[in-house]
Amino acid sequence: MQQSISVLVTFVLVGGLVAVMVSLGWLLGPRTETPAKGEAFECGNPPSGSAWGRFPVKFYMTAIIFIIFDVEVVFLYPWAVLFDRLGWFGFAEMLVFLTVLGFGLLYVWQKGALEWD
């Protein structure tokens, strides 16, 4: 109960503060639109072409490998909390888990998915 209240109250308070900041800037700031101002900033040159180009597949790879290892880390939190009770059994359990995923990391490493040039 107390936990829920503290979270909700903080969410509302911080959310309110952020909203107030944005609207204050909108209220207090001047607004004059000129063609040059609306242009994308490319160090003074007129912008050429669309800004949204395609991106190297590397970034996508990074994100997908991240998800997999993030899930791995997520399994570690409850394990760490209960480690004292699980003892050697828990250690062996996690060692197997980490070894399998360690092979995954080695595979990614060896295939060069982590190389950036």
């Binding site: 900033f41 912008p47 949204w52 994100a63």
Partner: peptide, 18 residues
């Protein structure tokens, strides 16, 4: 931001953060 420099920064930043 409709700006290629911004987009570059955004993608760099997110890949770095994760």
């Amino acid at each position: 931001s409709n700006n290629r420099l911004s987009l570059l920064g955004g993608i760099r930043g997110s890949a770095q953060m994760i």
